[in-house]
Nucleic acid binder design. Structure first.
Lengths: 203, 203
DNA sequence: CACTTGTTCTACCAGATGGTAGAGAACCAG
DNA sequence: CTGGTTCTCTACCATCTGGTAGAACAAGTG
């Protein structure tokens, strides 16, 4: 069972970092210290390997994000008081940045899959559906409590997602505007992003 | 000279839509109604073709964005009055959405190149440098006139870029939250995005 | 006419790709 | 020891990849 995990790890790094088409089974095998045929023994084909990588990543990302949210008090709907909406947003942003630093391949894979589209994206959509629904409900609750400005929660979710993912992972765009994405710099970026989001959400 | 243009068009559509690695010279030639060797006659190699596609796209995008900005009064620095910052932002967003509808391959190529990184990204960076500098100066002017909240203009630029590009081009993310990216829907998306940006920038 | 130049083609190649067939080794159970 | 299961390997294959060599053809130009 250990070989299987090594393959998955190498495949995640390659697929998330260089992209599905740019990576060969041979190179994944080389990274794992084995032969290509061993890869094909554990996962029947390159497509099947990609499926396994996606499923694993979706599970890990879901777990990380849920954990980050659950460490903050949830916004129950019978709570007359305004729930601490902002703490929730901040927790998620922190989780995403932690992922961007520690497991950048995972966010890279997510980007890659949204680029490749079907059929890969379907697995992600299915796996993330509860998370998306939860985020939507979170925004709606924030609007009803008056903390978040009223608008289409789905579009607000897309805007927020794009902003967070972009600032956290678009290394080349950062360089293009003269920001070197060092580790120390990441903290500044996160703080600016949180200000940006607070303005955008609270309106 | 006509064949050359047909090749460039087909290559742009393929590279921007499916990605550099996923596209073969044979398929580009097929789309252009010619043989692969004719492609290699006009552009010495696949890499050289990609370079030409990138350069053309950078030029076209620059022209489109500059035209959109110049149709609105520029913010001169000796202008004591607050220049109409918001009109500038709105003009650019409108231009990007027009591109997303009419030439989605161009924005797709831009995404692809930021994903591929060096050496491709260098050409884009070089070509966009004046545009980036102009945008940065625009934001700084907005801050000094009190229209835009004060912060690091480079990071604000990255946040804004990410949000606009995401909302305009991330089709699969839109579908994941239940928004079908139809043409009619695009207008709504743009309006919501502008509200989002106004809140985020004005703060 | 011959000669050059520009363009598109057929023919071909070496290397990489995803995938198949099957041998050999390690292990456990009887 | 024997037989079966699990895993990793070598050997091989059909196909596709980017790229080269050079013929065929047209259009000028002297």
């Amino acid at each position: 069972m250990e070989t299987r995990d090594r393959i998955l790890e190498a495949a995640l790094a390659s697929f998330g970092g260089r992209g599905y088409d740019a990576v060969s089974l041979d190179s994944i095998a080389r990274d794992s210290g084995i032969r290509k045929q061993t890869v094909l023994y554990h996962f029947g084909s390159k497509d099947a390997l990609m499926e396994a990588v996606i499923d694993g990543t979706v599970a890990d990302l879901t777990a990380a994000l849920l954990a980050s949210v659950e460490s903050t008090p949830p916004a129950t709907e019978d709570d007359g008081e305004s729930p601490d909406v902002w703490a929730g947003v901040e927790a998620v942003v922190r989780a995403v940045f932690r992922l961007a630093v520690r497991r950048p391949e995972m966010l890279g894979l997510l980007r890659e899959v949204t680029r490749l589209g079907p059929p890969w994206i379907d697995r992600v959509r299915a796996g993330f559906e509860p998370l998306v629904e939860r985020a939507r409900a979170f925004l709606v609750a924030g609007m009803e409590s008056g903390t978040i400005r009223r608008c289409d929660p789905r579009l607000l979710l897309v805007s927020t997602y794009s902003t967070v993912m972009g600032v956290a992972t678009e290394v080349e765009v950062l360089r293009a505007v003269g920001v070197e994405p060092t580790l120390r710099d990441t903290v500044l970026r996160r703080r600016e992003l949180l200000r940006f989001l607070r303005s955008a959400l609270v309106g």
